[in-house]
Nucleic acid binder design. Structure first.
Lengths: 331, 331
DNA sequence: GCCTAGCACTCTTGCTTGCTGACTGCTAAG
DNA sequence: CTTAGCAGTCAGCAAGCAAGAGTGCTAGGC
C-alpha cells in the first residue's frame, strides 16, 4: 500500500462517513490535494478493490469501504481535536459534582449520546465486595420481607424473601438483630458457618426464618453489574433499514450481549466493527474505553453506531468522558 | 347511537385493529351477522362519520376510527378471556419466586412485553420512608466516598461525596460510626438537629467531613422512583413511520414523561389514548394498572402501543400481571 | 513504466402514463 | 327505512423513458 493509495482510501472512507453514499473518483480528487487526474484515482481504486478494501455496489457507482477498509482507516487515522465548546461541556459536566451514583452514570450515558449523537452505554463500577457490611429487613407483606444487603465495597442488593409462615412486625427487628450479628463483617462463606450458632438465641419458630433469610443472602453473591443505556432514540435516524433498528434495539435490551460486546474488552480504548463483534454481516461499530483505577471504581463507557460512524470525533469524546468519570470516582 | 350503529362501529374498530387498513362496508358485513345489505352499512357509516367516530382517508377508501371511535370501542367492549397457555405462563412466572427486587420488576416488564408484543413499563414500588435505617461508607478514592443510605421502607440511595481533604482508610470507620450514631433511626429533619452534637466527639479535621456527609444525606431525601422499561425493540415493527418510532423511543427514555403518563393515574386500570396523553395528534395508547396494597409495595405496570392496539387482550394481560405482582410483594 | 484524455458502456433514479381494482355516494324503487 | 344498481373517485402498480452519474478501457504522452 503506497502513500497515494493510502490517501485515496482514507479520503474515500472520510467522504463515505460524511455522506453515506458511494464515493466517486472525482469526489476523492476534490477532497485531497493529490496532483493527479481522476483516471489515476480510478486505477488506484481498482487496485484497492482487488485487495479487498473497497467494493462497488453496482457497475456504474462509486466505491464504498469494506469492513477491511474501515479497519485500515481506524488504525491509521488520528483522533480529532474537539472544539473548545465540546471540551468545555464535558469538563463542566464532571466539575459540577453529582451526588447520586446511579444518576451520575445515567447522566454520563446521556452526555455521551448528546455529544456524539449515537446511543451510549455505561457499565457501572465493579463494587465487588465479599464481606457483608450492612443488612436491613423491611416488611412488605405478612409473608414477604425485603432484605437489603450492602457489601464492603458498596454493592447493594435488594433480596425478596418469602416466608412459609406469617410474621409479626415486632419479630422483624429481632430477626434483623440476629442476622446482623451472624452475617455482618463476614464473607458469605464464613457467614454460612456462623449460622449454626445464631438460631440458638431465638424462639423455635424464628430459627427456620433465619435460615431462609440466610439462604437468600447466599444467593445474592453473584455480581450484578449495572448497565446504563442512553440515546436509544438516536438509532431511528442512524440506520436506514427498520429491521436493523429492530436488531440493534434488541441488542441494547439484552444486558448479556452488551456485557459481552463492551464489558469483555481489555483496559484502554478499543474500536470493534462488524464481524469482530461476533455475528457476521452486522453494520455496527462499538467505541469503548475503561474508566476508574481500581476494581471498585472501574467500568467502561461505550458508544455504538453504524460502521460509517464518525470515528475520529467519537473516539476522542469517549476517551475524554472516560477520563472525566475516572476523576469523579477515584481522585 | 342505535344498536346496529354500535355493532357496525365496534366491528369496524375490531377489523381495523386486526389489519391496520381502512375497513370497507363489505368487510363489516362479513364480520357481523347483521341481516342487511352493504348499502345500509354505508348509510350507517356516513352517520357515524357525521358524528365524528370514523373518517375516510380519501374518497374511495374504507373508514378508519377516529380517537373518539376508539374511545367508544374501549368503553363498550369487554376484555378478552386469555388462552389457558397464557394464563398459565403468568401464573408460573409469579409462582417461581424471584429473589431480587430489581430483577423481579425488570423481568415483569419483559413478561408483559413478551405476552403482549408491546413495549412495557413497570414503576417500582414506593418504598418511601423518612427514617434512616442504615448507613454505610465506602472509600472509592482519596477524596471520594460512597455513602449507601437505606430508609426504613427499604429505599436505597448511593450518594457520592467529594471531600475537600484527602482521607485515610482508618478514618472511614470512625466517621461511619459517628454518622450511624447521629443519623440512624431518625428522620432527616431530626437528624439535622442531632448533628450539632456529633462533631464534638471527633478530631477537629473530621468534624467538617461529618457535616459534608450529613449534607449529602439530607439531599437524598427526594423520592426517586425506579422505572423498568422492556421491549423497546418491539416498536420497530409497531409504527410504520420511522419518525414515530423515534418519538416513542424518546418518550420511553425520558423518565419524567413516562411518570407523567403512567404514574399519575388513579388506582385501578386505565386506558389512555392519543390526545388524552397530552400532546395532540399522537398515535399512542397506554394501558396501565396499579399493583400492591400499601404505599410501600405499590406501583404501576403499563403497556403502550399504537392506537390500533389489541385492547381486549392487552387490558386483560395487564390486569393479570398486576395481580400477580401484588401477590408477590404483599401477601 | 506511470499518468491522462476521451469515449463507450452500464446502471440507478425519477418521472410520466395508463390501467386496474376497490369503495363510495347517490338515486330510484320496493 | 332498506336495497339494487351504477357512476365517480382515487390509490397502487407496472412499464417505459430520459437523464445523469460514474466507471473501465484504450491509446497516446512524458
Amino acid at each position: 500500500m503506497d502513500d497515494r493509495k493510502a490517501a485515496v482510501l482514507n479520503a474515500l472512507v472520510d467522504e463515505h462517513i460524511r455522506t453515506g453514499q458511494p464515493v466517486s473518483s472525482r469526489a476523492i480528487l476534490e477532497k485531497t490535494n493529490l496532483n493527479v487526474s481522476s483516471a489515476t484515482v480510478r486505477n488506484d481504486l481498482a487496485a484497492l478493490e482487488a485487495d479487498g478494501y473497497v467494493v462497488q455496489p453496482h457497475t456504474s457507482a462509486g466505491r464504498i469501504p469494506t469492513e477491511r477498509g474501515f479497519r485500515y482507516y481506524i488504525d491509521t487515522t488520528d483522533p480529532a481535536r474537539l472544539r473548545a465548546g465540546t471540551r468545555e461541556r464535558i469538563n463542566e459536566f464532571f466539575m459540577s459534582f453529582h451526588h447520586e451514583l446511579r444518576n451520575l452514570l445515567k447522566q454520563t450515558s446521556e452526555l455521551l449520546t448528546d455529544i456524539t449523537a449515537y446511543p451510549a452505554v455505561v457499565i457501572g463500577p465493579g463494587l465487588v465486595g465479599e464481606k457483608i457490611h450492612g443488612l436491613h429487613l423491611v416488611q412488605l407483606g405478612s409473608h414477604v420481607l425485603l432484605m437489603v444487603l450492602v457489601t464492603e465495597a458498596g454493592q447493594v442488593t435488594q433480596e425478596l424473601v418469602r416466608l412459609p409462615t406469617a410474621i409479626e412486625s415486632h419479630q422483624v427487628a429481632r430477626l434483623e438483630d440476629a442476622l446482623v450479628r451472624s452475617l455482618v463483617d463476614r464473607t458469605l462463606a464464613e457467614a454460612r458457618e456462623a449460622l449454626d450458632d445464631a438460631p440458638r438465641e431465638l424462639p423455635a419458630g424464628e430459627a427456620g426464618i433465619v435460615a431462609t433469610l440466610a439462604d437468600a443472602a447466599m444467593r445474592s453473591e453473584a455480581e450484578t453489574r449495572e448497565l446504563y443505556v442512553g440515546g436509544t432514540s438516536m438509532l431511528a435516524g442512524l440506520w436506514e433499514d427498520i429491521s436493523k433498528v429492530h436488531f440493534i434495539l434488541e441488542l441494547l435490551e439484552r444486558e448479556s450481549s452488551l456485557m459481552k460486546l463492551v464489558g469483555s474488552q481489555p483496559e484502554g480504548t478499543s474500536v470493534l466493527i462488524g464481524p469482530e463483534l461476533g455475528s457476521n454481516e452486522l453494520d455496527l461499530a462499538v467505541v469503548s474505553t475503561s474508566y476508574g483505577v481500581d476494581v471498585r471504581s472501574s467500568g467502561r463507557v461505550a458508544v455504538l453506531g453504524p460502521m460509517r460512524m464518525n470515528y475520529r470525533r467519537t473516539i476522542r469524546v469517549v476517551e475524554e468522558v472516560g477520563e472525566g468519570l475516572t476523576d469523579s470516582l477515584s481522585s
